[in-house]
Design a protein around this nucleic acid. Structure first.
Lengths: 196, 196
DNA sequence: GTCTATAAACCGATAGAC
DNA sequence: GTCTATCGGTTTATAGAC
């Protein structure tokens, strides 16, 4: 059971779109094997069982997904620019990667403790750590964690409701564009937090 | 295949907590049957197959869940009171019913067109219809649908992140209380929309 | 309407040859 | 490290007696 062979990575990368689209129980080991181009039995030379494969795939997907944030925040000078940079980062990161977003959503509804901790360690904590000080500085009167969740939800819910929004009145195709979300959320927060 | 017998309803009500907790593929017909107190074969006298059972269960769960909103909005006099009433309704409706919330979340990640339309028809559209005018009146400069999604996400993400929030710094148990969410979100929106 | 029995398909995982 | 073959278990769904 090697840890970093070529096929090992190929298996992870092949399984991620499947798990994102159909969920853990919705994907058979045969499906992953077929996508890679091997048989299901061969998978067990790389992973002891399905659950371990899934966990390693999640780890692989969530890893180093937050790399750009620190630089983006550092290059911003005013509080308003830092806020805009943060929102833009959040929208671009999760808006452009449907697989990452689907996995995130599935894990959040599933509620497995071990995998939730993975989610926190790889996604939420690194981001929160980066913006905590900044959040507190621009709005000391708000609870920092609650404000962080509010900012995240403000962005994420536009993506989560994207598949059903088109059935609602007043829908416009521009609602799906990143720039629209960024502008809407940023202007809302600038007002809400009275940022000069 | 009768449509409204006693056991028909019992089956729906027994299946909902299971589907909410384990998802469609995570629940076997045997599981539902055992909870009701019959055998799996007997289920097929009430539903043609598993998928139909699931759809009828969803319909049953989402039905008439929005009844109280109109009255709450009508009893509020000032815009600020109406906003508070709306947020309170949203928090109480989805905060007190874990099953409804889980089903909603699962359907939003799953993305099946037919069931998404059910979600819109039973939940999002009735609520949006009720608040659309009110939203537009208190903030004409914002896109009404985007603002609606923002308000919904502002509330819902506090629930969606509840299972993982406790692993983040600055967490306090009070973050899980309805009153905390209501106050936080309402005050944020009052500022954001410059409501007198 | 519910039961027992069972069909038919699918699933995760293993054994053993190469 | 991958293959073929297969085991044991579970699943949806049906047939037929009561």
């Amino acid at each position: 059971m090697p840890k970093q062979s070529k096929t090992y990575i190929k298996i992870l990368e092949a399984s991620l779109p499947l798990f994102a689209a159909f969920g853990y129980k919705g994907v058979a080991m045969r499906d992953i094997a077929n996508t890679v181009g091997i048989t299901a039995a061969a998978l067990y030379n790389h992973f002891p069982n399905k659950e371990a494969l899934y966990f390693k795939a999640l780890e692989y997907a969530f890893d180093a997904q937050v790399a750009g944030l620190a630089a983006m925040l550092a290059s911003a000078e005013t509080p308003r620019q830092r806020l805009a940079a943060f929102i833009e980062f959040w929208v671009e990161t999760f808006g452009s990667d449907v697989i990452l977003r689907a996995l995130l959503q599935r894990e959040m509804t599933d509620g497995d403790e071990t995998r939730l901790k993975l989610l926190v360690r790889h996604v939420f904590f690194p981001v929160y750590e980066e913006v905590e000080e900044f959040i507190h500085s621009l709005s000391p009167q708000h609870d920092p964690l609650m404000l962080f969740i509010s900012m995240a939800g403000l962005v994420m819910y536009h993506f989560e409701t994207a598949p059903l929004r088109k059935f609602l009145p007043d829908f416009k195709p521009s609602h799906d564009e990143h720039a629209t979300v960024i502008n809407h959320v940023t202007s809302l927060l600038i007002q809400a937090l009275s940022i000069p």
